[in-house]
């Protein structure tokens, strides 16, 4: 699958950007400023709007693609700070998008898959708790689980190692690397080490005072 941004303009920073890269395995959008790459991810999922230009997935314009396939089947987005709905329990948070994605699936199967991933990430939490009762790093790990369970066409991750300690980061990297052959991911990161260790492909953004350029490695 090829992702193309054509004459893409959001604001003064992302102005007339032309960028195209294959979406297979793990693609890291490396951006030291942490703004342009995040903005591209947010535009993909529809959280930010762009002024001009188009986004294409293969030969289909993004809006049409999402209309046809639905947003939840196309993208899952992991927020950098592990955002969850504060008025829902942890389990309800994980179940809400899951039931939209996999309509009519047995909740027991969901619990089984959830337990496996929680064990892999070394998470021992009572899922009846509200998000405010657990540590931000644990919330972020649960957000990864939430996104992985959705198995979207493209998994979008913003600032993947933020909030995580070394051990949590290593566990996460092993899971992402394991998922990568069957799960396309686009990751916005400013972490050099993470990018070097995990990326199949890197899009390096270079922001001069006047314009943003992108180089694919």
């Amino acid at each position: 699958m090829q992702l193309t941004f054509s004459s893409f303009t959001v604001n003064n920073i992302i102005n007339q950007l032309d960028l195209s890269f294959p979406v297979e395995g793990i693609t890291v959008l490396y951006d030291e400023t942490e703004s342009a790459a995040e903005m591209l991810l947010r535009c993909l999922i529809g959280l930010d709007r762009w002024k001009e230009g188009q986004i294409w997935l293969d030969d289909t314009e993004l809006t049409h693609y999402i209309e046809e396939k639905t947003l939840i089947n196309t993208f899952a987005y992991v927020f950098e700070d592990g955002t969850m709905m504060s008025n829902l329990s942890l389990r309800e948070n994980l179940w809400l998008p899951y039931q939209l994605r996999w309509k009519g699936e047995d909740p027991a199967l969901f619990d089984k898959k959830l337990a496996v991933l929680m064990k892999r990430l070394d998470l021992d939490i009572d899922l009846r708790w509200r998000p405010a009762f657990i540590k931000p790093a644990q919330r972020k790990q649960l957000c990864y689980i939430q996104a992985i369970l959705l198995q979207p066409t493209i998994l979008l991750i913003n600032n993947p190692s933020y909030l995580l300690n070394r051990k949590q980061r290593a566990l996460l990297q092993s899971i992402l690397a394991e998922q990568a052959p069957g799960q396309a991911m686009i990751i916005a990161s400013s972490d050099d080490d993470f990018t070097r260790e995990i990326a199949d492909r890197t899009v390096r953004f270079d922001l001069t005072s006047t314009e943003l350029s992108a180089r694919i490695e």
Binding site: L71, I72, Y77, T83, M85
Partner: peptide, 20 residues
């Protein structure tokens, strides 16, 4: 208050990211 805090905590964005 609840909806205002949801905006600040980006929970509204979260819902939109699910297509809700």
């Amino acid at each position: 208050t609840e909806l205002g805090n949801m905006v600040v905590n980006r929970e509204i964005d979260l819902l939109r990211s699910f297509g809700i």
